[in-house]
Every structure is written in C-alpha cells, then in structure tokens.
C-alpha cells in the first residue's frame, strides 16, 4: 500500500473527535451545519437568520466554529464532511477552489432574479460580508494632528510610541508600500522586498504583532500601543463605551469574506436555500446595524440611515478612500510570501 495524504488524514480527522455523524442528522429530517467564526456573532446570526429560516423552511441550522482552512482540507480529503457551508477569506476561497475543496454554487437557486452584482458572485463562493483593515489609534496620545495615513503610521518622530500590525503579510505589506509612496492602483503585484525593507524602519517600534481581533482591541485599550492596524467593526463598540479610540478609512484594505460549500457537503440544496435567505435586504440591514460588515445585498441601504451608511466600509466615500485587497494575487503567492514573512519576523 502506498501511503498518501488522503488515507492518513482519515485517521487524523477521526481523532479530532468533534465531528458529528452526518447520517444521524439526515435521519432526523434536515439540519445543515454552518461554520462561522463563533463568539458573540454566533448568537446574532442565530437570532437574525437561522431561527427565522427554520421557521420558514423547517430546515434546522446548527452553527459550528471556528473558520479553519486546515479543517476544511481535512474534511474534504477524508470524505467526512460535516459542514454544509463555511465562511472563508478571499484568498482561502482561491486556495480552496484551486484544490477542489469547494462545490460550485447554483446561483439559479441563490439569486433567481439575478439581482446580485457580479462582484459578489464567485463560482464557488458568495460574498457574505466586507470589512476593512484600517488604521486605528488612541485619540488621547497625540495633541493636535492625528495620524491619518500609513505614512503617518511610519512617522515615529511626529507620532512616537509603540504600535502594532497584524502578524500576517496580508494587508501589512500593502500598508508598508503605501507608506513608501506606492499608489494604491500600482500595489499589485506586491514588491515584497521593498515592503519588508520599509517595515524594517518601524520593526523596533512594534513590540507585538497581533494575530486576533480581540488582541488588537486589547492592545489599544490597555495602552500597550498607540496605533495599530485594525478591523473596522471592532472600533465603534469601543467608541460607544467612550474609549479614546478612532479609525480612519484612508488607505484601508477593503477585504471580502465569503460563504462557500465544502465539496461533498451533505445538504447542498438546503444550504443554498439558506444562502438565498440571507440575501433578504431587510434582514441584512438589521444585521449590519449590529455587525458593521455589510455584504453586497441588493436594496439593503434602503433600510439604513445615511449617517450609519457613512461608517460602513462599503459606503461610497469609504470605499473610494481604500484599496481593494487582491485575493487572487495573495492566493497565488501566499505560500512563498508567508514563508518570507515568517523568516522576516522571526529572524
């Protein structure tokens, strides 16, 4: 017998032990499993989408977490697929599609009237949300002028103090190039070495590289850093609490988050029904009021206050100030760049 990755993974996936038996779910009528990032968001999604969906269709929804490409890979390769849908990052979609881990979506079910913009529809994934990685800062640290660009972020003379960036090349390299004067439209293909040498300039001012959303928020409010790259949705709750923090959308990275269906998902039809349900503009608007990561749901803005729309990454003004993160380039270069990045950060 030759040992292949496939039959080895059978064992390792079984060892994960967290997988429900799909046969059992089928026997009980239909329950689809939707994998997301968990946390408090899970409750919001359940109340706003999952329960009403069950009420309307009789199809039950079970949430699981976290989003993990390795887990998707393990499931598909072992043939033991638990998820019917999973959230995915832009470049995850590219990698997963290339490796054949995702099912093609049938847009005649999801969007029968063809209302979705082309930008929202990938053959194997649907845009679920958009978010920005932007510059966030402590408003109480600098008198007068506040940082408003990545060039300011790099300017340790005018804006002294520790800062943080994500421990990932994605976005971070783009910010370095923008700080170095590259025009947003000329970013891709990225000049990785130029970005890294620009990063060398502030490496000493970065005591910690964040890796989770919770962490960069904590760093800011604990005063560990004065500025950080940051997910836009994390800041408004802090401002509501009266914390001295702010963001600028200027030169932010507009990123898309998708929903995809693992190859061999047990309930493809029901899963696509659920995707369709989530495109209801009224529900989507209510959801965005709580979670400011809007998808491209046609007609959603009609249900929102203009002032609120201003704070969303996809608001026309904000979208114009940002650059569009190129998932395709990242998917193609991820392995190589990540390796280079790891080396650069660890050595």
């Amino acid at each position: 017998m030759t040992i292949t990755r496939r039959n080895f993974n059978l064992g390792s996936v079984a060892a994960l032990g967290a997988l429900a038996a799909p046969a059992m779910a089928r026997a009980e009528g239909t329950t689809i499993v939707v994998n997301g990032s968990g946390g408090s968001l899970e409750t919001v999604i359940r109340d706003m989408f999952e329960l009403p969906f069950t009420e309307q269709t009789g199809i039950k929804v079970r949430a699981s977490a976290p989003v993990s490409l390795p887990k998707l890979k393990a499931m598909v390769e072992s043939g033991n697929v638990e998820w019917d849908l999973t959230e995915l990052n832009g470049d995850d979609v590219v990698i997963a599609t290339k490796n054949g881990w995702l099912e093609e979506l049938d847009y005649s079910i999801i969007d029968p009237e063809g209302l979705l913009p082309e930008m929202a529809k990938e053959p194997t994934a649907l845009v679920r949300a958009s978010y920005s990685t932007v510059l966030a800062y402590r408003t109480d640290r600098y008198e007068g002028e506040q940082p408003s660009s990545w060039a300011d972020f790099w300017d340790v003379e005018r804006f002294p103090g520790p800062r943080s960036l994500e421990n990932s090349p994605k976005g971070t390299l783009e910010f370095a190039l923008l700080a170095d004067g590259v025009a947003p439209e000329d970013l891709y293909p990225l000049d990785v070495e130029r970005a890294l040498s620009k990063l060398d300039e502030i490496k000493a001012h970065i005591p910690v590289w964040w890796s989770t959303g919770a962490q960069h928020v904590q760093l800011l409010i604990d005063g560990e850093v004065n500025m950080t790259s940051c997910w836009n949705g994390r800041i408004s709750p802090l401002q509501t609490e009266g914390k001295p923090v702010a963001i600028t959308f200027n030169e932010g990275a507009l990123m898309l988050s998708y929903m995809g269906m693992p190859k061999g998902a047990p309930h493809p039809k029901e899963a696509m029904e659920f995707l369709k349900f989530r495109l209801n503009p009224k529900l989507a608007a209510d959801f965005v009021k709580v979670v400011p990561y809007p998808g491209f749901v046609p007609g959603m803005f009609d249900y929102l206050e203009p002032d609120f729309v201003e704070t969303l990454p996809t608001a026309p003004k904000n979208a114009a100030a940002q650059f569009k993160f190129n998932s395709q380039w990242w998917a193609e270069n991820l392995e190589e760049v990540t390796e280079r990045w790891t080396e650069w950060t660890l050595l």
Partner: peptide
C-alpha cells in the same frame, strides 16, 4: 514574547495553521 521569542512550537503552529505546510 515578541517575534524574537517565538520558538519551535510557534513555528509548528504557523506551519499547521497559516502556511498549511503539514
């Protein structure tokens, strides 16, 4: 730790979760 304090377990974790180089 900072990046300079990361050790073998962190590197393994990185290979498993980020670069998928199992």
């Amino acid at each position: 730790g900072g990046q300079k304090s990361l050790i073998i377990a962190n590197l393994i974790d990185l290979q498993v979760h980020k670069t998928l180089n199992w």
